[in-house]
Amino acid sequence: MTLSRSTGGTVTIILFLGLVGAFMALPVLYTVVTAFKPLHEIFYWPPRFFVREPSLENFTMLFEIAQEMWVPLERYIFNNIFVSVFGTALYVFVASMAAYPLAKYKSKTLDAVYWVVVLAIMFRPEVTRIPQYVIMNALGMVNTYAAMIVPVLSGSFGVFLMRQFMLGVPDSMIEAARIDGGSEYYIFFRLIMPMTRPAWLTLIIFTFTQFWNMSGAEYIYDEGMKSLSAVLSQIASAGIARAGAGAVVALLMMIPPYLVFVISQSSVMETMAHSGIK
């Protein structure tokens, strides 16, 4: 690059990045260190940021709380894993299937559907929750796992993301497969899906994180069906004495999304480059 960059500018940029980076990272870090703080350090005044004598006290405390709980902690973990894995798989499948015609089949109707899909991204579940609840109630879905999964499946973000990425699959390849006698199903599963791997990996990350952190408290009344997130807020709401245990649950909960993101970051970046609205 031929452009000159002043040293002063670079220093300012690094300072600015450092400040905002600290703002973004410190609360997460504070959660991690709090998880290892023994009780007397949590109550210590003035509160210290870092832990002096790291201990696993909070982990044992959480374990004890879990034993006393009416529903065993394993049950919540199972609920979270079940809803996250099953929900994510369904979501990616439904969204990818719908994205293929929207990307590769020319029709006026589908163009209109595409714009409805884009607009619908704005209507987050928080906003349509009440009428959605009425419908789920009428269909007998309240207080089932479906109540946590199905509303997410009806969201249009995944379809949009997959469509944008599928636009990049050359038409000539699809034509060639058709001439060779490949059915549309064959083309979708054997050509489109393998070629859009980074896109559905990205979608897996977004969706998994969404399901994993979902509380679902409005739709689930049965204690044994609640999610880890709902339990976290129950534990944390017990006050400061539980801060350590709450931090442990938070720490354990954020490990899966972070891991998944770090491992597949390059695929995510490849996908997001295609996310623009044209």
């Binding site: 905002v20 980076g21 973004m24 990272a25 609360p27 997460v28 504070y30 959660t31 709090t34 949590i42 109550f43 005044w45 509160p47 994180t209 994993w212 952190n213 997130s229 976290l232 807020s233 944390a236 400061i240 801060a243 709450g246 931090a247 938070a250 909960m253 954020m254 999304p257 972070y258 993101f261 770090v262 970051q265």
Partner: peptide, 25 residues
């Protein structure tokens, strides 16, 4: 990862309650 992190951590914003808490913690 640092900048996108808060979105991954999801429920971690409860730690803000302790940061902004009005009592001794």
């Amino acid at each position: 990862v640092i900048f996108y992190g808060p979105n991954l951590a999801g429920n971690v914003y409860f730690i803000w309650v302790y940061i902004f808490s009005g009592d001794s913690v």
